[in-house]
């Protein structure tokens, strides 16, 4: 049975332990009631439902979990966390999985989302605060998508909703140090 042996081969027994440790939440308590998936506003767009991700983590299906679209499409709305009857902090699990995926260089299926996160944080690292106009332009260049929302962007500029020039906080060196000191910290 080629299929089964391949599946077994992909099981990483240490994975579940590592996620539990990083997320600091008792994910073994999950009894698959599906409350999280039925509450999830983005479930319709995910490749695996949140309850399936929890089960896959328990089983050690590292590769499938870390390359899923689910971990990036999660909108971090906290609805599953508020409703889980077993008090599994699913958002902390998702955060741990995202951090692991980034640490292992897994690009995943939602590159536009990881690119957005990266671009957002670049602006914070440089200036200490978000500079929306610069961040938006950089994101457009990186994703080679110049025309989506062009009209909206112009409308927002005209309404004064986007600052034209960036401002840098006085403590921007402290921010840079925070980025340096937390690099690779797990």
């Amino acid at each position: 049975m080629q299929f089964i042996s391949e599946q077994v081969h992909q099981i990483d027994p240490a994975f579940s332990q590592k996620v539990k440790q990083m997320a600091d939440t008792p994910l073994d308590r999950c009894y698959q009631c599906l409350t999280c998936s039925l509450s999830c506003p983005v479930a319709f767009a995910m490749d695996y439902l949140p309850n399936q991700i929890i089960r896959m983590v328990q089983l050690g299906l590292r590769k499938q979990v870390l390359t899923s679209s689910t971990i990036w499409l999660c909108a971090t709305c906290e609805t599953c966390v508020a409703r889980c009857p077993q008090e599994v902090d699913i958002l902390r699990v998702m955060d741990a999985l995202r951090e692991m995926a980034l640490g292992e260089g897994e690009e995943g299926k939602e590159k536009v989302i990881t690119t957005f996160n990266q671009t957002f944080l670049q602006s914070v690292r440089l200036l200490g605060r978000q500079y929306e106009l610069g961040m938006l332009l950089l994101l457009k260049l990186k994703t080679r998508d110049l025309f989506t929302d062009l009209i909206l962007g112009i409308k927002m500029l005209l309404k004064g909703k986007l600052k034209l020039l960036p401002t840098r906080i006085r403590g921007s060196k402290e921010i840079k140090a925070i980025f340096e000191r937390t690099k690779g910290e797990v």
Partner: peptide, 9 residues
């Protein structure tokens, strides 16, 4: 983007 990237950051 912060908590989706790094716990400590």
């Amino acid at each position: 983007p912060g908590h989706c990237t790094s716990f400590w950051l």
